[in-house]
Nucleic acid binder design. Structure first.
Length: 564
RNA sequence: UGGGGAGUGGUGCAAUGGUAGCACAGCGGCCUUUGGAGCCGUUGAUCCUGGUUCGAGUCCGGGCUCCCCAGCCA
Protein backbone atom coordinates (compact mmCIF):
# COMPACT_ATOMS: atom_id res chain seq x y z
CA UNK A 1 0.00 0.00 0.00
CA UNK A 2 1.36 3.37 -0.94
CA UNK A 3 1.44 5.77 1.92
CA UNK A 4 -0.48 8.86 1.11
CA UNK A 5 1.60 11.96 1.44
CA UNK A 6 0.67 13.66 4.66
CA UNK A 7 -1.61 16.59 4.06
CA UNK A 8 -0.50 19.63 5.89
CA UNK A 9 -1.66 23.20 6.19
CA UNK A 10 -1.73 25.84 8.87
CA UNK A 11 -4.90 24.51 10.46
CA UNK A 12 -3.57 20.97 10.77
CA UNK A 13 -0.40 22.44 12.27
CA UNK A 14 -2.46 24.23 14.91
CA UNK A 15 -4.43 21.09 15.65
CA UNK A 16 -1.21 19.11 16.03
CA UNK A 17 0.14 21.70 18.44
CA UNK A 18 -3.07 21.77 20.45
CA UNK A 19 -2.97 18.01 20.82
CA UNK A 20 0.73 18.02 21.73
CA UNK A 21 0.23 20.72 24.33
CA UNK A 22 -2.78 18.99 25.80
CA UNK A 23 -5.17 21.81 25.02
CA UNK A 24 -7.56 19.19 23.68
CA UNK A 25 -7.56 15.46 24.10
CA UNK A 26 -9.41 14.64 20.95
CA UNK A 27 -10.43 16.33 17.78
CA UNK A 28 -14.02 17.12 16.99
CA UNK A 29 -15.14 19.30 14.11
CA UNK A 30 -18.46 20.26 12.65
CA UNK A 31 -20.08 21.59 9.52
CA UNK A 32 -22.67 24.22 10.48
CA UNK A 33 -24.88 25.13 7.50
CA UNK A 34 -27.85 27.43 7.79
CA UNK A 35 -30.79 25.73 6.06
CA UNK A 36 -31.68 28.71 3.90
CA UNK A 37 -30.38 27.58 0.52
CA UNK A 38 -28.50 24.87 -1.31
CA UNK A 39 -24.88 23.98 -0.76
CA UNK A 40 -22.36 25.05 -3.39
CA UNK A 41 -18.79 24.10 -4.24
CA UNK A 42 -17.54 26.62 -1.69
CA UNK A 43 -19.29 24.67 1.04
CA UNK A 44 -17.58 21.56 -0.24
CA UNK A 45 -14.33 23.15 0.87
CA UNK A 46 -15.61 23.69 4.39
CA UNK A 47 -16.97 20.16 4.50
CA UNK A 48 -13.74 18.75 3.16
CA UNK A 49 -11.65 20.63 5.71
CA UNK A 50 -13.81 19.79 8.69
CA UNK A 51 -14.41 16.18 7.73
CA UNK A 52 -10.83 15.68 6.54
CA UNK A 53 -9.31 16.97 9.77
CA UNK A 54 -11.58 14.87 11.95
CA UNK A 55 -10.62 11.88 9.81
CA UNK A 56 -6.87 12.62 9.87
CA UNK A 57 -6.79 12.94 13.64
CA UNK A 58 -9.13 10.08 14.41
CA UNK A 59 -11.79 12.45 15.68
CA UNK A 60 -15.47 13.03 15.12
CA UNK A 61 -17.34 15.13 12.63
CA UNK A 62 -20.75 16.58 13.47
CA UNK A 63 -23.42 18.03 11.28
CA UNK A 64 -25.16 20.94 12.91
CA UNK A 65 -27.79 23.09 11.32
CA UNK A 66 -27.45 26.68 12.39
CA UNK A 67 -31.19 27.29 12.49
CA UNK A 68 -31.54 30.34 14.68
CA UNK A 69 -33.51 32.48 12.25
CA UNK A 70 -36.97 31.03 11.50
CA UNK A 71 -37.83 33.69 8.96
CA UNK A 72 -35.21 32.42 6.50
CA UNK A 73 -35.01 28.73 7.13
CA UNK A 74 -36.97 25.85 5.68
CA UNK A 75 -37.13 22.10 6.05
CA UNK A 76 -36.70 21.68 2.28
CA UNK A 77 -33.19 22.99 2.64
CA UNK A 78 -32.18 20.71 5.49
CA UNK A 79 -33.14 17.67 3.43
CA UNK A 80 -31.27 18.97 0.38
CA UNK A 81 -28.20 19.80 2.43
CA UNK A 82 -28.07 16.36 4.03
CA UNK A 83 -28.35 14.72 0.63
CA UNK A 84 -25.50 16.82 -0.73
CA UNK A 85 -23.16 16.17 2.19
CA UNK A 86 -23.86 12.47 2.03
CA UNK A 87 -23.22 12.50 -1.69
CA UNK A 88 -19.88 14.20 -1.15
CA UNK A 89 -18.96 11.37 1.17
CA UNK A 90 -18.75 13.09 4.55
CA UNK A 91 -20.29 10.92 7.26
CA UNK A 92 -21.67 12.50 10.42
CA UNK A 93 -22.90 9.09 11.63
CA UNK A 94 -25.62 9.69 14.24
CA UNK A 95 -24.45 13.17 15.14
CA UNK A 96 -27.04 15.27 13.39
CA UNK A 97 -27.65 18.33 15.51
CA UNK A 98 -29.52 21.58 15.37
CA UNK A 99 -28.78 24.83 17.15
CA UNK A 100 -32.49 24.80 17.91
CA UNK A 101 -31.89 21.67 20.02
CA UNK A 102 -30.04 23.97 22.38
CA UNK A 103 -32.56 26.81 22.68
CA UNK A 104 -33.38 25.99 26.30
CA UNK A 105 -29.72 25.72 27.26
CA UNK A 106 -28.90 28.94 25.44
CA UNK A 107 -31.69 30.67 27.30
CA UNK A 108 -30.16 29.45 30.57
CA UNK A 109 -26.78 30.80 29.48
CA UNK A 110 -28.35 34.17 28.77
CA UNK A 111 -29.93 34.21 32.22
CA UNK A 112 -26.52 33.46 33.72
CA UNK A 113 -25.00 36.43 31.94
CA UNK A 114 -27.80 38.69 33.10
CA UNK A 115 -27.21 37.54 36.67
CA UNK A 116 -23.52 38.28 36.25
CA UNK A 117 -24.39 41.76 35.12
CA UNK A 118 -23.03 41.00 31.66
CA UNK A 119 -26.23 41.27 29.69
CA UNK A 120 -29.18 43.63 29.62
CA UNK A 121 -32.52 44.16 27.99
CA UNK A 122 -32.50 47.17 25.69
CA UNK A 123 -35.66 49.05 24.67
CA UNK A 124 -33.97 51.02 21.92
CA UNK A 125 -35.38 50.55 18.44
CA UNK A 126 -33.28 48.98 15.71
CA UNK A 127 -32.60 52.42 14.27
CA UNK A 128 -31.58 53.79 17.60
CA UNK A 129 -29.27 50.90 18.26
CA UNK A 130 -27.60 51.58 14.95
CA UNK A 131 -27.15 55.23 15.88
CA UNK A 132 -25.77 54.43 19.29
CA UNK A 133 -23.35 51.94 17.79
CA UNK A 134 -21.19 54.69 16.30
CA UNK A 135 -19.26 54.17 13.10
CA UNK A 136 -16.04 52.54 11.98
CA UNK A 137 -14.11 55.59 13.08
CA UNK A 138 -16.23 56.93 15.94
CA UNK A 139 -16.93 55.07 19.17
CA UNK A 140 -20.49 54.23 20.14
CA UNK A 141 -22.30 55.38 23.23
CA UNK A 142 -24.09 53.51 25.96
CA UNK A 143 -27.77 52.82 25.72
CA UNK A 144 -29.83 54.56 28.37
CA UNK A 145 -31.12 51.11 29.34
CA UNK A 146 -27.65 49.70 29.87
CA UNK A 147 -27.66 50.00 33.63
CA UNK A 148 -30.93 48.34 34.46
CA UNK A 149 -30.88 46.21 37.57
CA UNK A 150 -30.35 42.48 37.31
CA UNK A 151 -33.86 41.94 38.63
CA UNK A 152 -35.44 44.16 36.02
CA UNK A 153 -33.41 42.52 33.25
CA UNK A 154 -34.40 39.07 34.45
CA UNK A 155 -38.05 40.06 34.58
CA UNK A 156 -38.02 41.68 31.16
CA UNK A 157 -36.14 38.83 29.52
CA UNK A 158 -38.58 36.35 30.98
CA UNK A 159 -41.47 38.39 29.61
CA UNK A 160 -39.78 38.60 26.23
CA UNK A 161 -39.81 34.83 26.20
CA UNK A 162 -43.40 34.76 27.40
CA UNK A 163 -44.45 36.71 24.34
CA UNK A 164 -45.53 39.92 26.06
CA UNK A 165 -43.82 42.17 23.53
CA UNK A 166 -44.11 42.58 19.78
CA UNK A 167 -41.29 42.00 17.32
CA UNK A 168 -38.57 44.58 17.65
CA UNK A 169 -39.76 45.99 20.96
CA UNK A 170 -36.71 44.89 22.92
CA UNK A 171 -33.53 42.88 22.58
CA UNK A 172 -31.11 41.28 24.96
CA UNK A 173 -27.57 42.61 24.57
CA UNK A 174 -24.21 41.67 25.96
CA UNK A 175 -22.64 44.37 28.09
CA UNK A 176 -19.12 44.67 26.73
CA UNK A 177 -17.66 47.92 25.43
CA UNK A 178 -19.37 50.53 23.27
CA UNK A 179 -16.02 52.14 22.48
CA UNK A 180 -14.29 49.02 21.17
CA UNK A 181 -12.49 49.35 17.85
CA UNK A 182 -14.12 46.04 17.00
CA UNK A 183 -17.72 46.87 16.27
CA UNK A 184 -18.79 43.33 17.11
CA UNK A 185 -17.86 44.03 20.71
CA UNK A 186 -20.09 47.10 21.03
CA UNK A 187 -22.78 45.41 23.10
CA UNK A 188 -23.88 42.91 20.46
CA UNK A 189 -27.47 41.74 20.35
CA UNK A 190 -27.91 38.26 21.82
CA UNK A 191 -31.65 37.73 21.44
CA UNK A 192 -34.34 39.31 19.34
CA UNK A 193 -38.13 38.93 19.44
CA UNK A 194 -39.51 37.06 16.45
CA UNK A 195 -43.07 35.85 16.60
CA UNK A 196 -42.44 33.29 13.93
CA UNK A 197 -43.02 29.59 13.40
CA UNK A 198 -39.74 27.65 13.50
CA UNK A 199 -39.33 24.61 11.26
CA UNK A 200 -38.40 22.44 14.25
CA UNK A 201 -39.57 24.12 17.44
CA UNK A 202 -42.85 25.38 16.03
CA UNK A 203 -44.33 28.15 18.17
CA UNK A 204 -42.45 27.17 21.31
CA UNK A 205 -40.26 30.25 21.09
CA UNK A 206 -40.80 33.87 20.17
CA UNK A 207 -37.27 34.95 20.99
CA UNK A 208 -34.35 33.60 19.01
CA UNK A 209 -30.61 33.82 19.70
CA UNK A 210 -28.32 35.61 17.27
CA UNK A 211 -25.52 33.74 15.52
CA UNK A 212 -22.87 35.11 17.88
CA UNK A 213 -24.70 33.93 20.94
CA UNK A 214 -25.59 30.54 19.48
CA UNK A 215 -22.61 29.34 17.56
CA UNK A 216 -19.84 29.22 20.14
CA UNK A 217 -22.10 27.80 22.81
CA UNK A 218 -23.36 25.14 20.40
CA UNK A 219 -19.75 24.25 19.64
CA UNK A 220 -19.11 24.06 23.36
CA UNK A 221 -22.12 21.87 24.07
CA UNK A 222 -20.95 19.45 21.38
CA UNK A 223 -17.36 19.48 22.67
CA UNK A 224 -16.10 20.70 19.33
CA UNK A 225 -12.34 21.14 19.67
CA UNK A 226 -11.76 23.14 16.52
CA UNK A 227 -14.38 25.43 15.12
CA UNK A 228 -13.25 26.06 11.57
CA UNK A 229 -14.92 28.85 9.70
CA UNK A 230 -14.41 31.39 7.01
CA UNK A 231 -12.40 34.60 7.29
CA UNK A 232 -15.53 36.70 7.70
CA UNK A 233 -15.76 35.47 11.27
CA UNK A 234 -12.28 36.54 12.21
CA UNK A 235 -13.64 39.76 13.65
CA UNK A 236 -16.15 37.73 15.64
CA UNK A 237 -13.54 35.57 17.35
CA UNK A 238 -13.07 37.95 20.31
CA UNK A 239 -16.81 37.78 20.89
CA UNK A 240 -16.84 34.00 20.44
CA UNK A 241 -14.18 33.81 23.13
CA UNK A 242 -15.85 36.37 25.38
CA UNK A 243 -19.11 34.43 25.71
CA UNK A 244 -17.30 31.18 26.43
CA UNK A 245 -15.08 32.78 29.04
CA UNK A 246 -17.90 34.62 30.79
CA UNK A 247 -19.95 31.43 30.83
CA UNK A 248 -16.93 29.41 31.99
CA UNK A 249 -17.78 26.49 29.75
CA UNK A 250 -15.76 24.22 27.44
CA UNK A 251 -13.86 26.47 25.08
CA UNK A 252 -13.33 25.32 21.48
CA UNK A 253 -10.74 27.05 19.34
CA UNK A 254 -12.02 29.00 16.36
CA UNK A 255 -9.70 29.04 13.36
CA UNK A 256 -10.52 30.89 10.17
CA UNK A 257 -9.56 30.09 6.60
CA UNK A 258 -10.22 31.83 3.30
CA UNK A 259 -13.04 30.68 1.15
CA UNK A 260 -12.51 30.67 -2.57
CA UNK A 261 -14.20 31.82 -5.72
CA UNK A 262 -14.47 29.88 -8.94
CA UNK A 263 -13.79 31.72 -12.15
CA UNK A 264 -16.75 32.54 -14.40
CA UNK A 265 -19.35 31.87 -11.73
CA UNK A 266 -20.61 33.26 -8.46
CA UNK A 267 -20.50 31.49 -5.13
CA UNK A 268 -22.96 32.98 -2.74
CA UNK A 269 -26.27 31.60 -1.66
CA UNK A 270 -27.82 35.01 -2.06
CA UNK A 271 -26.84 35.46 -5.69
CA UNK A 272 -27.48 31.85 -6.61
CA UNK A 273 -30.89 32.19 -5.02
CA UNK A 274 -31.57 35.23 -7.13
CA UNK A 275 -30.63 33.39 -10.30
CA UNK A 276 -33.11 30.68 -9.38
CA UNK A 277 -35.90 33.07 -8.38
CA UNK A 278 -35.52 35.31 -11.39
CA UNK A 279 -35.41 32.37 -13.78
CA UNK A 280 -31.90 32.72 -15.15
CA UNK A 281 -31.49 29.01 -14.47
CA UNK A 282 -33.95 26.17 -14.05
CA UNK A 283 -33.46 25.64 -10.33
CA UNK A 284 -30.86 25.07 -7.65
CA UNK A 285 -29.92 21.82 -9.37
CA UNK A 286 -29.59 23.26 -12.87
CA UNK A 287 -26.45 21.58 -14.25
CA UNK A 288 -24.91 25.00 -14.90
CA UNK A 289 -25.10 25.90 -11.23
CA UNK A 290 -22.02 25.62 -9.02
CA UNK A 291 -24.23 24.00 -6.40
CA UNK A 292 -23.49 20.45 -5.33
CA UNK A 293 -26.96 19.50 -6.58
CA UNK A 294 -26.16 21.07 -9.95
CA UNK A 295 -22.80 19.37 -10.19
CA UNK A 296 -24.33 16.03 -9.31
CA UNK A 297 -26.87 16.45 -12.08
CA UNK A 298 -24.12 17.57 -14.41
CA UNK A 299 -22.26 14.33 -13.75
CA UNK A 300 -19.33 15.53 -11.65
CA UNK A 301 -18.11 12.63 -9.52
CA UNK A 302 -17.89 13.52 -5.82
CA UNK A 303 -14.42 11.97 -5.68
CA UNK A 304 -13.29 14.48 -8.30
CA UNK A 305 -14.67 17.34 -6.27
CA UNK A 306 -12.80 16.11 -3.22
CA UNK A 307 -9.56 15.74 -5.15
CA UNK A 308 -10.07 19.26 -6.45
CA UNK A 309 -10.61 20.55 -2.92
CA UNK A 310 -7.44 18.86 -1.73
CA UNK A 311 -5.50 20.52 -4.46
CA UNK A 312 -6.97 23.95 -3.88
CA UNK A 313 -5.49 23.80 -0.39
CA UNK A 314 -6.14 25.86 2.70
CA UNK A 315 -4.83 29.34 3.28
CA UNK A 316 -5.95 32.78 4.36
CA UNK A 317 -5.65 34.27 0.92
CA UNK A 318 -8.73 35.22 -1.01
CA UNK A 319 -8.56 33.47 -4.36
CA UNK A 320 -10.26 32.86 -7.65
CA UNK A 321 -9.65 29.30 -8.71
CA UNK A 322 -9.39 28.53 -12.40
CA UNK A 323 -12.41 26.62 -13.60
CA UNK A 324 -9.93 24.63 -15.68
CA UNK A 325 -8.54 23.07 -12.51
CA UNK A 326 -11.94 21.72 -11.56
CA UNK A 327 -12.42 20.39 -15.08
CA UNK A 328 -9.01 18.77 -14.95
CA UNK A 329 -10.06 16.75 -11.92
CA UNK A 330 -13.41 15.88 -13.47
CA UNK A 331 -11.67 14.56 -16.58
CA UNK A 332 -9.01 12.75 -14.63
CA UNK A 333 -11.62 10.87 -12.65
CA UNK A 334 -13.98 10.19 -15.55
CA UNK A 335 -11.15 9.07 -17.83
CA UNK A 336 -10.44 6.31 -15.30
CA UNK A 337 -14.04 5.33 -14.62
CA UNK A 338 -16.49 6.36 -17.34
CA UNK A 339 -17.45 3.62 -19.82
CA UNK A 340 -16.94 4.59 -23.46
CA UNK A 341 -19.85 4.82 -25.83
CA UNK A 342 -20.48 6.24 -29.30
CA UNK A 343 -22.57 9.34 -29.65
CA UNK A 344 -22.82 11.54 -32.72
CA UNK A 345 -23.79 15.10 -31.90
CA UNK A 346 -23.93 16.53 -35.45
CA UNK A 347 -24.85 13.58 -37.63
CA UNK A 348 -23.74 13.33 -41.27
CA UNK A 349 -24.75 10.25 -43.23
CA UNK A 350 -22.09 7.99 -44.70
CA UNK A 351 -23.01 5.28 -47.20
CA UNK A 352 -20.55 2.40 -47.65
CA UNK A 353 -21.27 1.72 -51.30
CA UNK A 354 -19.55 -1.66 -51.47
CA UNK A 355 -21.14 -2.97 -48.27
CA UNK A 356 -24.11 -5.30 -48.83
CA UNK A 357 -27.50 -3.77 -48.30
CA UNK A 358 -29.40 -5.24 -45.37
CA UNK A 359 -26.31 -6.73 -43.80
CA UNK A 360 -25.48 -6.13 -40.13
CA UNK A 361 -22.39 -7.32 -38.31
CA UNK A 362 -21.57 -6.97 -34.67
CA UNK A 363 -18.27 -5.33 -33.90
CA UNK A 364 -16.44 -5.70 -30.58
CA UNK A 365 -15.84 -2.39 -28.75
CA UNK A 366 -13.60 -1.82 -25.77
CA UNK A 367 -15.57 -0.33 -22.88
CA UNK A 368 -12.68 1.46 -21.26
CA UNK A 369 -9.08 1.39 -22.49
CA UNK A 370 -8.01 2.60 -19.05
CA UNK A 371 -9.67 -0.31 -17.31
CA UNK A 372 -9.45 -3.75 -18.81
CA UNK A 373 -11.94 -5.14 -16.32
CA UNK A 374 -14.65 -3.01 -17.94
CA UNK A 375 -14.68 -5.57 -20.77
CA UNK A 376 -16.11 -5.19 -24.24
CA UNK A 377 -19.51 -4.87 -25.90
CA UNK A 378 -20.96 -5.62 -29.34
CA UNK A 379 -22.05 -2.76 -31.59
CA UNK A 380 -23.86 -3.12 -34.92
CA UNK A 381 -22.25 -2.04 -38.19
CA UNK A 382 -24.17 -1.63 -41.43
CA UNK A 383 -24.16 0.05 -44.81
CA UNK A 384 -25.42 3.41 -43.65
CA UNK A 385 -23.79 5.17 -40.75
CA UNK A 386 -23.64 8.54 -39.08
CA UNK A 387 -20.38 10.29 -38.46
CA UNK A 388 -19.72 13.70 -37.03
CA UNK A 389 -20.29 16.50 -39.51
CA UNK A 390 -17.02 18.16 -38.56
CA UNK A 391 -15.14 14.97 -39.36
CA UNK A 392 -15.65 15.60 -43.08
CA UNK A 393 -14.29 18.48 -45.14
CA UNK A 394 -14.55 19.19 -48.82
CA UNK A 395 -11.21 20.94 -48.82
CA UNK A 396 -9.20 19.56 -45.97
CA UNK A 397 -5.86 21.11 -45.06
CA UNK A 398 -2.94 18.78 -44.62
CA UNK A 399 -3.12 19.13 -40.85
CA UNK A 400 -6.70 17.84 -40.96
CA UNK A 401 -6.46 14.08 -40.61
CA UNK A 402 -10.09 13.17 -41.05
CA UNK A 403 -12.34 12.39 -43.99
CA UNK A 404 -12.29 14.31 -47.27
CA UNK A 405 -11.72 13.79 -50.98
CA UNK A 406 -8.91 11.31 -51.46
CA UNK A 407 -8.75 10.37 -47.81
CA UNK A 408 -8.86 7.04 -46.07
CA UNK A 409 -9.76 6.90 -42.38
CA UNK A 410 -10.50 4.30 -39.76
CA UNK A 411 -13.94 3.85 -38.28
CA UNK A 412 -13.18 3.00 -34.69
CA UNK A 413 -13.42 -0.76 -34.10
CA UNK A 414 -14.98 -0.93 -37.60
CA UNK A 415 -13.24 -0.79 -40.95
CA UNK A 416 -11.02 1.50 -42.96
CA UNK A 417 -13.14 3.50 -45.36
CA UNK A 418 -12.08 5.47 -48.42
CA UNK A 419 -13.78 8.55 -49.81
CA UNK A 420 -15.67 8.13 -53.09
CA UNK A 421 -18.03 11.03 -53.48
CA UNK A 422 -20.29 13.36 -51.60
CA UNK A 423 -23.72 14.85 -52.33
CA UNK A 424 -25.07 18.28 -51.45
CA UNK A 425 -28.54 19.71 -51.15
CA UNK A 426 -29.74 22.82 -52.97
CA UNK A 427 -28.23 25.03 -50.26
CA UNK A 428 -24.80 23.59 -50.88
CA UNK A 429 -24.87 21.70 -47.61
CA UNK A 430 -23.16 18.31 -47.64
CA UNK A 431 -25.84 15.74 -46.85
CA UNK A 432 -24.18 12.44 -47.63
CA UNK A 433 -20.71 11.06 -48.09
CA UNK A 434 -20.11 7.93 -50.13
CA UNK A 435 -17.22 5.67 -49.23
CA UNK A 436 -15.93 2.18 -49.86
CA UNK A 437 -14.68 -0.08 -47.13
CA UNK A 438 -11.80 -2.51 -47.09
CA UNK A 439 -13.11 -5.89 -45.82
CA UNK A 440 -9.55 -6.83 -44.84
CA UNK A 441 -9.50 -4.16 -42.13
CA UNK A 442 -12.20 -5.55 -39.86
CA UNK A 443 -11.87 -4.24 -36.33
CA UNK A 444 -9.78 -1.36 -37.60
CA UNK A 445 -6.51 -3.18 -38.28
CA UNK A 446 -4.79 -3.20 -41.66
CA UNK A 447 -3.12 -6.57 -42.33
CA UNK A 448 -0.79 -4.90 -44.84
CA UNK A 449 0.41 -2.53 -42.16
CA UNK A 450 -0.73 0.62 -43.91
CA UNK A 451 -1.41 3.55 -41.63
CA UNK A 452 -4.26 5.99 -41.47
CA UNK A 453 -4.00 9.05 -39.34
CA UNK A 454 -7.64 9.65 -38.52
CA UNK A 455 -9.98 7.49 -36.48
CA UNK A 456 -13.66 8.46 -36.38
CA UNK A 457 -16.50 7.49 -34.12
CA UNK A 458 -19.75 6.40 -35.76
CA UNK A 459 -23.14 4.81 -35.22
CA UNK A 460 -25.15 2.59 -37.52
CA UNK A 461 -28.01 4.70 -38.91
CA UNK A 462 -30.58 1.91 -38.74
CA UNK A 463 -29.69 0.96 -35.18
CA UNK A 464 -28.95 4.35 -33.63
CA UNK A 465 -31.11 5.75 -30.85
CA UNK A 466 -32.31 9.33 -30.82
CA UNK A 467 -31.23 11.36 -27.85
CA UNK A 468 -31.52 14.87 -26.58
CA UNK A 469 -28.16 16.29 -25.69
CA UNK A 470 -27.74 19.36 -23.52
CA UNK A 471 -24.54 21.31 -23.81
CA UNK A 472 -23.46 23.67 -21.08
CA UNK A 473 -21.10 26.57 -21.16
CA UNK A 474 -19.94 29.01 -18.51
CA UNK A 475 -22.73 30.95 -16.81
CA UNK A 476 -20.83 34.24 -16.93
CA UNK A 477 -18.52 35.96 -19.38
CA UNK A 478 -16.25 37.43 -16.79
CA UNK A 479 -13.66 35.68 -14.70
CA UNK A 480 -15.08 37.57 -11.75
CA UNK A 481 -18.75 38.32 -12.49
CA UNK A 482 -19.06 40.40 -9.34
CA UNK A 483 -16.47 42.84 -10.59
CA UNK A 484 -19.02 45.32 -11.96
CA UNK A 485 -19.15 49.07 -12.38
CA UNK A 486 -21.06 51.11 -9.85
CA UNK A 487 -24.78 50.72 -10.50
CA UNK A 488 -24.36 47.63 -12.67
CA UNK A 489 -25.79 44.28 -11.77
CA UNK A 490 -23.84 41.04 -11.95
CA UNK A 491 -26.61 39.41 -13.98
CA UNK A 492 -25.58 41.63 -16.87
CA UNK A 493 -22.46 39.50 -17.09
CA UNK A 494 -24.43 36.33 -17.68
CA UNK A 495 -23.76 34.30 -20.78
CA UNK A 496 -27.04 34.01 -22.73
CA UNK A 497 -25.71 30.91 -24.50
CA UNK A 498 -24.82 28.86 -21.45
CA UNK A 499 -27.34 26.20 -22.48
CA UNK A 500 -27.69 24.60 -25.92
CA UNK A 501 -30.23 21.85 -26.43
CA UNK A 502 -29.59 19.45 -29.30
CA UNK A 503 -32.65 17.31 -30.08
CA UNK A 504 -32.55 14.08 -32.07
CA UNK A 505 -28.87 13.26 -31.92
CA UNK A 506 -27.62 9.73 -32.57
CA UNK A 507 -26.26 7.40 -29.94
CA UNK A 508 -25.41 3.71 -29.97
CA UNK A 509 -28.15 1.20 -29.09
CA UNK A 510 -26.55 -0.04 -25.87
CA UNK A 511 -27.46 3.29 -24.27
CA UNK A 512 -31.14 2.28 -24.27
CA UNK A 513 -30.97 1.20 -20.65
CA UNK A 514 -28.66 3.85 -19.28
CA UNK A 515 -29.81 5.01 -15.85
CA UNK A 516 -30.11 8.60 -14.64
CA UNK A 517 -26.86 9.71 -13.06
CA UNK A 518 -24.67 7.38 -15.11
CA UNK A 519 -21.79 9.07 -16.89
CA UNK A 520 -20.31 7.92 -20.18
CA UNK A 521 -17.56 9.11 -22.39
CA UNK A 522 -18.87 9.67 -25.89
CA UNK A 523 -15.58 8.99 -27.60
CA UNK A 524 -13.88 12.07 -28.95
CA UNK A 525 -16.78 14.28 -27.77
CA UNK A 526 -16.67 14.43 -24.02
CA UNK A 527 -18.39 13.05 -20.96
CA UNK A 528 -22.16 12.85 -20.76
CA UNK A 529 -24.45 12.15 -17.85
CA UNK A 530 -27.98 10.75 -18.08
CA UNK A 531 -30.34 13.43 -16.80
CA UNK A 532 -33.13 12.58 -14.34
CA UNK A 533 -35.53 13.86 -17.04
CA UNK A 534 -34.39 11.06 -19.32
CA UNK A 535 -37.02 8.52 -20.42
CA UNK A 536 -37.03 5.58 -22.79
CA UNK A 537 -38.84 7.77 -25.32
CA UNK A 538 -36.59 10.73 -24.84
CA UNK A 539 -33.09 9.79 -23.76
CA UNK A 540 -31.49 12.89 -22.32
CA UNK A 541 -27.81 13.52 -21.73
CA UNK A 542 -26.06 16.40 -20.03
CA UNK A 543 -22.57 17.19 -21.22
CA UNK A 544 -20.46 16.98 -18.08
CA UNK A 545 -17.28 18.29 -19.68
CA UNK A 546 -15.72 18.24 -23.12
CA UNK A 547 -12.61 16.29 -24.00
CA UNK A 548 -9.42 18.26 -24.04
CA UNK A 549 -9.38 19.50 -27.59
CA UNK A 550 -5.89 19.83 -29.02
CA UNK A 551 -7.19 20.09 -32.57
CA UNK A 552 -9.22 23.16 -31.69
CA UNK A 553 -6.05 24.82 -30.43
CA UNK A 554 -4.07 23.84 -33.52
CA UNK A 555 -6.76 25.29 -35.78
CA UNK A 556 -6.88 28.47 -33.80
CA UNK A 557 -3.16 28.88 -34.16
CA UNK A 558 -3.29 28.15 -37.90
CA UNK A 559 -6.00 30.78 -38.29
CA UNK A 560 -3.92 33.33 -36.44
CA UNK A 561 -0.88 32.53 -38.56
CA UNK A 562 -2.94 33.07 -41.71
CA UNK A 563 -4.02 36.49 -40.51
CA UNK A 564 -0.45 37.70 -40.15
C1' U B 1 -8.73 59.05 9.04
C1' G B 2 -11.14 52.64 14.12
C1' G B 3 -10.43 47.27 14.38
C1' G B 4 -9.16 42.65 11.95
C1' G B 5 -6.82 39.97 7.78
C1' A B 6 -3.97 39.10 3.11
C1' G B 7 0.10 40.17 -0.71
C1' U B 8 5.22 34.27 -4.26
C1' G B 9 4.84 32.76 -12.21
C1' G B 10 -1.47 33.68 -15.88
C1' U B 11 -4.19 30.76 -11.55
C1' G B 12 -3.89 28.19 -6.85
C1' C B 13 -0.70 26.17 -3.16
C1' A B 14 4.47 25.14 -0.98
C1' A B 15 9.36 26.60 0.72
C1' U B 16 8.94 27.37 8.97
C1' G B 17 16.92 32.08 8.03
C1' G B 18 20.34 28.05 3.61
C1' U B 19 19.62 25.73 -4.39
C1' A B 20 12.23 29.55 -4.88
C1' G B 21 9.23 23.96 -5.77
C1' C B 22 4.34 21.36 -7.11
C1' A B 23 -0.31 21.39 -9.72
C1' C B 24 -3.48 23.65 -13.42
C1' A B 25 -3.12 26.67 -17.71
C1' G B 26 0.48 27.85 -21.84
C1' C B 27 4.31 26.29 -25.27
C1' G B 28 7.34 22.22 -27.80
C1' G B 29 8.05 17.07 -28.69
C1' C B 30 7.18 11.54 -28.32
C1' C B 31 3.40 7.98 -28.57
C1' U B 32 -1.52 6.66 -29.97
C1' U B 33 -7.43 2.34 -33.24
C1' U B 34 -10.32 8.58 -28.99
C1' G B 35 -6.28 15.08 -32.30
C1' G B 36 -8.53 11.51 -25.53
C1' A B 37 -5.19 9.23 -22.10
C1' G B 38 0.01 8.61 -21.17
C1' C B 39 5.25 10.09 -21.42
C1' C B 40 9.29 13.79 -21.96
C1' G B 41 10.82 18.72 -22.14
C1' U B 42 9.97 24.03 -21.49
C1' U B 43 8.49 29.56 -20.64
C1' G B 44 7.22 32.19 -16.36
C1' A B 45 7.07 34.64 -9.67
C1' U B 46 8.72 36.58 -3.95
C1' C B 47 4.08 44.35 -3.67
C1' C B 48 7.68 48.63 -2.78
C1' U B 49 11.58 50.49 0.33
C1' G B 50 15.25 50.66 4.09
C1' G B 51 17.64 47.53 7.80
C1' U B 52 19.58 42.91 10.60
C1' U B 53 22.52 38.66 8.75
C1' C B 54 27.90 35.15 5.74
C1' G B 55 22.94 34.40 3.76
C1' A B 56 16.00 37.18 3.80
C1' G B 57 10.06 35.08 0.31
C1' U B 58 10.89 34.10 5.58
C1' C B 59 13.19 38.49 10.87
C1' C B 60 12.74 44.17 12.00
C1' G B 61 11.16 49.48 10.46
C1' G B 62 8.45 52.49 6.94
C1' G B 63 5.13 52.61 2.84
C1' C B 64 1.61 50.72 -1.02
C1' U B 65 -2.46 47.67 -2.66
C1' C B 66 -6.56 44.42 -1.77
C1' C B 67 -10.37 42.03 1.47
C1' C B 68 -13.71 41.87 5.95
C1' C B 69 -16.59 44.48 10.06
C1' A B 70 -21.24 49.90 11.32
C1' G B 71 -28.16 43.28 10.49
C1' C B 72 -32.78 42.76 15.77
C1' C B 73 -28.63 37.90 8.88
C1' A B 74 -25.35 33.69 9.30
Amino acid sequence: MTKEEERTDFIREFVKEDLAEGRFEEVCTRFPPEPNGYLHIGHAKAININYGIAEDFGGEFNLRFDDTNPVKEEIEYVEAIKKDIRWLGADWEDREFYASDYFEQLYEYAVQLIKKGKAYVDDLSADEIREYRGTLTEPGKNSPYRDRSVEENLDLFERMRAGEFPNGARVLRAKIDMTSGNINMRDPVMYRILHEEHHRTGDEWCIYPMYDFAHGQSDSIESISHSLCDLAYEAHRPLYNWFLEELEIFHPRQIEFARFNLSYTVLSKRYLGRMVEEGYVDGWDDPRMPTLAGMRRRGYPPEAIRAFMDEVGIAKNESIIDFALLEHHIRQNLNQHAPRRMGVLNPLKVVITNYPEGKTEMMEFVNNPEDESAGTRMVPFSRELYIEREDFRENPSKRFWRLGPGREVRLRYGYFIKYEDHVKDEDGEVVEVHCTYDPETRGGYAPDGRKVRGTLHWVSAAHALDAEVRLYDRLFFMRNPLDVEEGEDFVENMNPDSLTVLPNRKVEPSLADAKPGEVFQFERRGYFCVDPDSTADNLTFNRTVTMRDTWKRIEKRLRQQKKR
